[in-house]
Design a protein around this nucleic acid. Structure first.
Ligand SMILES: [Zn+2]
Ligand SMILES: [Zn+2]
Ligand SMILES: [Zn+2]
Ligand SMILES: [Zn+2]
Lengths: 171, 171
DNA sequence: AGAAGGGTTGTTACAGTATAACATCTCATC
DNA sequence: GATGAGATGTTATACTGTAACAACCCTTCT
């Protein structure tokens, strides 16, 4: 499972690649890749691990930008919807999608499977339609020790699907 | 996949069964199933959906118990460790394990896969070693509309496993 | 009986995560 | 130049979770 990687790589290069991917995606979808959104994405790419919203805020402040929480959360919402980053529920944190290179435009919707180090918060993103035990095995093969797994699907239950009141933004 | 169920059932009966299961497990493991822990578990069984810690607190207060947050979180920690409930990361909430009947004592450690309604917060727990797409298909077969999926494995990365002191090396 | 110790609960205060609501700005269009 | 949509600024607050210490309840040992 080569898609699971904690190994070293050309980090400057991967940042450039991802940034170009992001630009071309936003351009194609007519989304505004503004300086703030670009900078937040860049921070996540540089971090190369899970970063909390307030971690990002801290970097922005170090940049000399007097940012407030809503600014960060808005940028994160944009990047999430654009498929450029993922939210790591377990950590209340965010990480850049590691599979931007692998997919062309339009592949916003893959289901990410993460291996999360609880110590250093590094994050590896696995690709492919694995089973639960398959993910654990693939992880073990790379030397990652799985201690806890979470599988959650969110949506509308049969009852709420019929109820119009629930259909607010239902896909 | 019969284990995915939003269908009706004998709810009073399922509560009794689960409570008996919990008692026998705690007894076998020499864990103290105290009145507070019992009541919190009961609240989750009665709710039969995801309940936040503060939702539980509210019920306790209605009971006439002047409880504070730590009391609830302690009871939840106990029940989580005992394998009687699960945490729903996506909702910052908790739900009683729906598979207590299915497993004998010692099966605390199954990986739960949840279908979570974002509208009514009802929760169905699927059993078995499904693939990501398999879960979505099984859900669709029951009339559940999946909008978003999360797969996360938490543990220790190869680096931290060997040298827990090296926290920031993962770049 | 009295002392010691582990586990549970009570209580206060606070840390960390996220959003509501409204003001302002910018830029394209009319 | 007025209008309107989208983005950001700003203030305040809601929601989720924990640290730290005190009190209590048992069981065990002296
Ligand atoms: Zn990189
Ligand atoms: Zn690590
Ligand atoms: Zn039930
Ligand atoms: Zn529902």
């Amino acid at each position: 499972m080569s898609a699971i990687g904690f190994e070293r790589h050309d980090h400057a290069g991967c940042i450039d690649d991802a940034m170009r991917q992001a630009e071309s995606r936003c351009k194609a979808d007519k989304l505004q890749f503004t300086p703030m959104r670009r900078r937040v994405f860049e921070i996540l790419l540089e971090a190369h691990r899970a970063f909390g919203a307030y971690d990002i805020l801290e970097v922005l402040v170090q940049d000399g930008h007097a940012a407030q929480p809503p600014t960060v959360y808005r940028a994160l919402d944009f990047l999430l919807k654009a498929g450029l980053i993922h939210r790591i529920e377990r950590l209340n944190a965010y990480a850049a999608c590691a599979l931007l290179d692998e997919h062309g435009h339009g592949a916003h919707d893959h289901v990410p499977a993460f291996l999360i180090c609880r110590h250093c918060r590094s994050v590896a993103e696995a690709e492919g339609d694995l089973t639960i035990s398959g993910l654990a095995e693939a992880a073990a093969a790379t030397g990652f020790l799985v201690e806890r797994q979470v599988v959650e699907a969110e949506g509308l239950c049969p009852a709420c699907r019929k109820d119009p009141a629930a259909a607010e933004v239902a896909a």
